[in-house]
Design a protein around this nucleic acid. Structure first.
Lengths: 131, 131
DNA sequence: TTCCTTGCAAATCGTTTGCATAATG
DNA sequence: CATTATGCAAACGATTTGCAAGGAA
């Protein structure tokens, strides 16, 4: 892995992600940080998000809405995507790694991991529908 | 849902998907059908794939390689993506819908579904690595 | 004749890249 | 000084869309 040099921008991107629990997209990161760093470029945001994701310092979430979301919480956990408002929410749930064993039963290869997203209506959207 | 009119192209696209078990991309569908329908357009392929997916007649797979794959088998099943060769393979495995109940335990919304992809090395790639 | 569908091309969207310059080690 | 990172703009790949013409009900 190549050596990294410090960069104010990369630090700001990572701190921004750490400060939020709503899993922003690259464009959200860019737009928000632009207020503090007026000549930050979108390319730099993408470059650093990819770099951090490759190093495992952040998570890239392909939630299926066409644009990647990012999460600074790299501890193992799952995500819920609301089909109503599109929000991406952390789930606090029991480990389900046994599904890899279940999947491997009739399979003649090696299963090293899985990606799971849960879909439905979030609490706020459920409430909204009742009114 | 709007009324559908018959179209030779749509029929061909669906039949093509039914004839394959390797989950082609839009471009693969286009390239293959072009031989029989030389002036089929890529736009038409995309339009019909989206239309069929919206109606639930086919599945759109977001396997994470940047381009969507499609599957005419809409019966509930799971997919494995080989990190070696990128192939998308059907898994014959036990039902794991209980993970939605597990996920819902500490969640104050409604979970209606989930998407899971398994990753690893397929049989062919495992073999290749040994040699 | 109504209106869905097509082919084609242009447009869009998210993301990546080339390059000259700036900052780090 | 050697190298990595930046800003900017151009390039890209996948997908969508506008529009005039074609085909199904």
């Amino acid at each position: 892995m190549a050596a990294l040099k410090y960069s104010r921008q990369r630090e700001a991107i990572k701190e921004f992600l750490l400060s939020r629990k709503d899993h922003p997209t690259a464009d959200m990161v860019y737009t928000s940080l632009r207020e503090e760093y007026p000549n930050l470029s979108l390319g730099t945001v993408y470059r650093n998000l990819s770099l951090l994701a490759d190093r495992g310092e952040i998570l890239r979430l392909r939630v299926g809405d066409g644009t990647d979301h990012f999460d600074a919480d790299v501890s193992p956990h799952y995500h819920f995507i609301c089909t109503g408002c599109g929000s991406v929410i952390d789930l606090e749930m029991e480990n389900i790694d046994q599904i890899e064993d279940i999947a491997g039963v009739n399979f003649n290869g090696q299963i090293y991991g899985h990606v799971t997203y849960f879909y439905g209506k979030c609490g706020a959207c459920c409430k909204r529908e009742l009114s």
